[in-house]
Design a protein around this nucleic acid. Structure first.
Length: 290
DNA sequence: CTAATTTGACCCGC
DNA sequence: GCGGGTCAAATTAG
């Protein structure tokens, strides 16, 4: 098993390669790049950096990590089912229902609509934790929740912990309004998907004081980060098919969790193979995606 | 006016 | 008793 450092390096290198490939595409959009879309590449880049940050920030494991590591709680016995009385809910104990994701960017669209219902200052942490539940919590009795907290400043790392499964069966990825803007190339052109280089102060401001509006804007940011682990790129020309799309059932609304959120290291060879020889031409590049 | 967010209070597990 | 999760009234935004 690789050391965390090696793992992080691998992630960064992989992201670097994907970024170079994306650069190639932007330079020559008319060329044939096979079945892998720019959207896939961009997502892979984001995921690689997230994974690298996650790996580094998790070593050694901090107290905060331990306290928020839901996976570690999953071995506990099932709690008694209580009446739906208020306060202090039972933590979901099915490991498949709990998972977390570390990201340098707190604003990403995960296919669902969330409503903020609370915010708390967490001891041992300089940052507040925000609590969200599925917007269809009432209408569809959807129990899905998540909380998000900035766990690291430099570089910024936002940890989102998902709890419970969506029973609302509503994934806005399927809404006409979203499918209308779903063209990955268009997303890239409009700069709505990737936010590399976003001003950190602006980021911080939007997250702390104006985060509510940011959440609403998630709908405009087509980033299916949540479904990332399930991504499949088929060889028959289909771009970026999600298992999610065909399995929005209550039992599989979430991708399989990785206990730390850092172990979902997958290298999609399909993303890297074509035009491999061209990489060396790009010692430097910039992401003009904004 | 309606819907979403904010925030202090409440509740519960440890 | 403390800390974290949730509620719900008040506030804000659209």
């Amino acid at each position: 098993m690789n050391s965390p450092h090696e793992k992080a390096v691998q992630e960064i290198l992989y992201g670097h390669r994907c970024a170079m490939r994306l650069k190639l595409r932007l330079d020559d959009p008319m060329a044939d790049y096979g079945s892998v879309s720019s959207y896939d590449l961009a997502k892979s880049i984001v995921q690689c950096f997230s994974n690298a940050i996650s790996v580094l920030s998790d070593q050694p494991k901090s107290e905060e990590d331990q306290s928020s590591d839901l996976s570690s709680r999953d071995s506990s016995p099932l709690p008694q089912i209580r009446s739906p009385s208020k306060k202090r809910k039972i933590q979901s104990t099915n490991s498949s229902e709990n998972w977390r994701d570390d990201s340098p960017d707190p604003i990403y669209y995960d296919g669902f609509l969330w409503r903020k219902y609370g915010q708390k200052t967490i001891k041992k942490s300089d940052h507040q934790r925000s609590y969200y539940r599925c917007s269809y919590n009432i209408d569809h009795n959807c129990r899905a929740r998540k909380h998000e907290q900035k766990i690291k400043d430099n570089p910024p790392v936002y940890r989102t912990t998902y709890i419970g499964q969506h029973t609302c069966k509503i994934n806005h990825k399927q809404d006409p309004i979203f499918t209308a803007v779903q063209d990955p190339v268009d997303d890239l052109k409009s700069g709505r998907m990737i936010q590399f280089g976003k001003d950190l102060d602006q980021e911080k401001e939007s997250h702390s004081s104006g985060f509510s509006s940011s959440v609403k804007h998630e709908e405009d940011i087509i980033k299916e980060k949540t479904m990332e682990p399930y991504r499949e790129i088929t060889g028959d020309g289909q771009d970026c098919q999600y298992v999610m799309e065909s399995s929005i059932s209550p039992s599989s609304s979430y991708p399989l969790p990785s206990s730390s959120g850092t172990e979902s290291v997958f290298y999609d060879s399909d993303l890297l193979l074509d035009n491999f020889d061209s990489w060396d031409c790009y010692d430097q590049f910039d992401f003009g995606l904004q």
